[in-house]
């Protein structure tokens, strides 16, 4: 399993990703994430267990971020290497990387 999404009682959904978020695993994760965040008010992507991402993961983040109003989507626990990829793509600020 590459992602686990938990719903907190305040409308917040936390999606915890694990391992390599490569193209193949992003396809699997996208279904789980998009089903889980349907009625979310706040979405947090926790990348604590993520060692690697491909561009397909950036697309998944972009897609998920549009489910909530600006500012209510954020990404936490990002390693420096992964952060560099978001920065090159020009997405670090827009996706609220912390």
């Amino acid at each position: 399993m590459s992602v686990e999404c938990s719903r907190l009682n305040n409308g917040k959904i936390v999606c915890k990703f694990l391992g390599r978020m490569d193209t193949t695993r992003c396809v699997e994760a996208e279904k789980i994430v998009m089903d889980s965040i349907d009625a979310a008010e706040v979405i947090v992507f926790d990348l604590d267990g993520v060692e690697y991402i491909a561009s397909s993961f950036l697309r998944l983040c972009g897609k998920a971020s549009h489910k909530v109003v600006d500012g209510n989507f954020s990404i936490v626990n990002v390693t420096p290497s992964v952060k560099k990829v978001f920065k090159i793509a020009g997405l670090a600020e827009r996706l609220n990387l912390r």
């Binding site: 491909a54 561009s55 950036l58 697309r59 983040c61 972009g62 897609k63 549009h66 990829v85 090159i88 793509a89 020009g90 997405l91």
Partner: peptide
């Protein structure tokens, strides 16, 4: 166009941008 919404950017374009930069 890095200022455009990510889903509006051409498929593949973002990957190539990463390759060229890295």
């Amino acid at each position: 166009d890095l200022s455009a919404p990510i889903e509006d950017r051409g498929i593949g374009g973002l990957g190539i941008h990463l390759v060229k930069t890295l």
